[in-house]
């Protein structure tokens, strides 16, 4: 990956790829969990991401997004979260009854607030 490409993903080439759980920021997770408690129920089966029409064509993966939110890896989500069309197809398959559409909406809202220093 070139430095330019790497920067597009929000990290420099020399930065560690490790998730540092002690320094990463889980404010977005807490914001989403409070407003959409079913967020806690995801067990990463990939049902949503298999169904998602958006994910077939572009890099968008709800299952992965949920895990990244949980780990506090927000930088990777900024672009991705805007790609959801909020069609709700994923909600029909989720075996854990996660309100996936609202998870996306709340994540987008949280990131907007985070960027305005309101979180």
């Amino acid at each position: 990956m070139s430095v330019r490409q790497a920067n597009r993903f929000g990290f420099g080439i020399n930065q560690s790829r490790q998730i540092n759980y002690d320094t990463s920021d889980r404010k977005v997770r807490d914001y989403v969990t409070l407003r959409e408690p079913s967020f806690r129920l995801c067990f990463a089966c990939g049902g949503c991401s298999a169904t998602c029409t958006a994910g077939e064509h572009i890099s968008f993966n709800l299952r992965r997004m949920i895990t990244l939110i949980r780990r506090g890896e927000i930088d990777l989500l900024r672009d991705e979260v805007t790609r959801c069309m909020l069609c709700g197809k994923c909600m029909l398959v989720c075996p854990r009854g996660v309100n996936t559409r609202n998870v996306v909406a709340m994540t987008a809202e949280a990131i907007r607030k985070l960027d305005r220093n309101e979180l």
């Binding site: 990463a44 089966c45 990939g46 049902g47 991401s49 298999a50 169904t51 994910g55 993966n61 299952r63 398959v93 075996p95």
Partner: peptide, 22 residues
Amino acid sequence: RGKVSEASVNISNRLVIKVEDT
């Protein structure tokens, strides 16, 4: 590793499984 979301049949009459390779 992935939960199959659906199956359908294509023109060559084979089943097509849709899943995320998580």
